[in-house]
Simulated assay, not measured.
Amino acid sequence: MNKHEPELIHTEAYSVLVERTSRRKTASIKVDEGEVIIIVPKLLQQDKIDKILVDKRSWIVEKLALYQATSPATIREYVSGESLPYLGRNYRLKVLTGDLTPTKLLNGRITVTVPEPSTQSHYVRRALVKWYKRHADKKIREKVWRYESLVGVETGVVRTKEFKSRWGSCTPYGDLEFNWVIVMAPNRVVDYVVVHELCHLIHHDHSPQFWKEVERVMPDYKEHKDWLREYGHGLSI
């Protein structure tokens, strides 16, 4: 197996993603949003991994059942033809069968390749999340670099992460964090979120002076602020 290719173990009830790492001396299993992942030492033999999975089968089944019972209903089925937003455009999802490979935007379609698409929608979702995070990191950094001179500030570390109820945050030291989900919004809305956080490096509150600064850089900011308030809760993968 190629060292960059994800390793999968298939059972009758579920599939397991194997993550090998030189930083671990023992194995651990987690069920993350319906996906079973076993993290093992880099050189652990396959038969030992299989034994761990057999021993933990009841626990895994219980966790998967709990996830299915408590997870909110999703509007996505993760099948070919579904529409996925990215920076103001909608792209069709194309799901192919094969070894796990990096997700790509090709010919106007976001193409995901997974072993068994009909029974492993969580792998499609996982691949899409990785794709969005990767592109969010690149696009948001580009926007920060473009707007920081217009705002008149210098930034420190710029990173993307997942927030539960906010689109971004900043520190007095110039470090900025953005919710990667924002790249599912229209392009100018993403610009607004970037400008908003950059202006917080000047005014650390939402005072009239803060909003005047935002308006100076982005005169039409209210339109994008209103879009985010009305539709932002629907941005999800």
Rank of each mutant, 00 (worst) to 15 (best):
W227A: 09
M218S: 03
Y147L: 04
V36D: 03
K164S: 13
H204G: 02
Y231E: 11
T103R: 06
K51Q: 15
V193I: 12
A13F: 09
R76C: 00
M184A: 12
S165P: 00
P219M: 09
N2Q: 15
D50G: 10
V36G: 02
A27W: 03
P208H: 10
I182L: 08
L64H: 07
T155H: 13
G81S: 08
I202L: 13
K51A: 15
P6F: 09
K139S: 10
E142G: 07
H203T: 01
M1E: 15
V144Q: 02
R126H: 15
W131R: 11
E35F: 09
E197T: 01
I237T: 04
A69N: 08
I75L: 09
H203N: 02
T103W: 11
P115D: 03
K25C: 06
L106D: 14
I140G: 03
E62H: 04
S236C: 07
Y86H: 12
S58M: 12
D99W: 08
N90P: 08
Y147G: 04
R159P: 02
E215L: 00
K138F: 07
L44D: 03
L87F: 14
W180S: 00
R92C: 10
I110F: 06
A13P: 01
R92D: 10
G88K: 02
A69R: 07
E116G: 01
Q209Y: 02
K138W: 13
R216E: 01
K212F: 01
V194K: 00
V40H: 00
C199P: 03
E223K: 11
D226L: 08
Q68V: 09
N2C: 05
G174M: 07
R229Q: 06
D191V: 10
V157A: 15
V124L: 15
R159T: 09
T101E: 12
E35D: 13
P117Q: 04
G152E: 06
H200D: 06
L201S: 01
K42N: 15
R159F: 06
R109E: 15
H200L: 01
V214C: 05
I52Q: 06
V129A: 09
R134C: 07
K51I: 07
N90D: 12
R159V: 07
P115N: 06
L198S: 03
V18T: 04
Y14R: 09
V31N: 00
V158R: 01
H204S: 05
I9C: 04
G156I: 01
E223R: 09
V158F: 08
T11P: 02
T101R: 15
L105W: 12
L176T: 02
D205W: 01
I9A: 06
S236D: 09
D220W: 06
D99T: 13
K130M: 06
G34Y: 04
E19I: 14
V217N: 01
K164P: 06
V95E: 00
N90H: 13
Q209C: 01
L198N: 06
G174F: 05
E148D: 01
I60C: 07
V183D: 02
Y78C: 00
E7S: 09
